[in-house]
């Protein structure tokens, strides 16, 4: 299981949102840290194949990002996603399951399983427009897990979750990371502190740090701030 990103760049007019990113990822949880505007979401959209890179290539086990096979193993939770107000939670997951080419029988079973997992079983027959922000976020996480993805890309997944939900989410991601590649972007350090195997820190479209952090003595937050200071000094 290998995600290969080679020389990935994205330019928007005069701005270089992502600049020449190359990395190879294997099974595990990868935390992608960076301030707002660092390029995290742009990178993630290119990994998911919904944004065309200006240059570079993304492939998973040899499959290019543009192939249907790539998207078949992908689970994605965007930073700001919507829903169909008239859909019920169950409808939404069944619809997403159809989009992910999951056979109907399996989709029904998987939907029930995930609704239980994210704590939405009691409200599964209610319309999404009645949900709170946290409930919508949990539904988003559920849809990302529908097809048992080998590559799970989560863009600020804990936004809107209360502390208890965030702990629950972290446990879920840690478990998932044993079997697939999880890329989790956030600018809140505590989200990934305990669960990431590797940390990638982005600044102005580039990786300013990439590697394991468990070997370091300091906390990830101090470690994160230190990287920014070092980057400023280098300038």
């Amino acid at each position: 299981m290998e995600l290969v990103i080679e020389g990935l760049s994205k330019n928007f007019k005069d701005t270089k949102a992502v600049s020449d990113i190359s990395v190879t990822l294997h099974k595990g949880v990868y935390g992608l840290l960076g301030a707002n505007g660092a390029g995290k979401s742009t990178l993630m959209r290119m990994i998911c194949g919904i944004l065309k890179p200006s240059s570079g290539r993304v492939s998973f086990d040899g499959m290019d990002v543009s192939e249907e096979g790539f998207r078949a193993v992908l689970g994605y939770l965007p930073q700001d996603f919507g829903y169909y107000p008239e859909f019920k939670a169950r409808d939404f997951l069944l619809y997403m399951a159809a989009l992910k080419a999951i056979p109907k029988k399996e989709a029904l079973a998987r939907t029930e399983e995930l609704l239980e997992l994210v704590g939405l079983k009691e409200v599964s027959k209610k319309k999404i427009k009645t949900f709170s922000g946290g409930m919508k976020q949990r539904l988003g996480i559920a849809q990302a897990l529908l097809n048992r993805p080998k590559l799970l890309v989560l863009d600020e997944p804990t936004a809107g979750l209360d502390p208890k939900e965030r702990v629950r989410f972290r446990n879920l991601i840690e478990k998932t990371g044993h079997d697939c590649i999880v890329i989790l972007s956030t600018h809140i350090v505590s989200d990934i502190e305990h669960i990431s195997d590797e940390v990638m820190i982005m600044r102005e479209g580039r990786f300013i740090y990439q590697g394991k952090w468990t070997d370091e003595q300091t906390s990830l937050e101090d470690f994160y701030l230190k990287q920014f200071e070092e980057a400023e000094e280098d300038e």
């Binding site: 194949g49 919904i50 249907e68 998207r71 700001d80 996603f81 829903y83 989009l99 849809q143």
Partner: peptide, 13 residues
Amino acid sequence: TKTEELILSSARG
């Protein structure tokens, strides 16, 4: 409705 990304990133999207 901001569902475009979810759809486009799906296998059958």
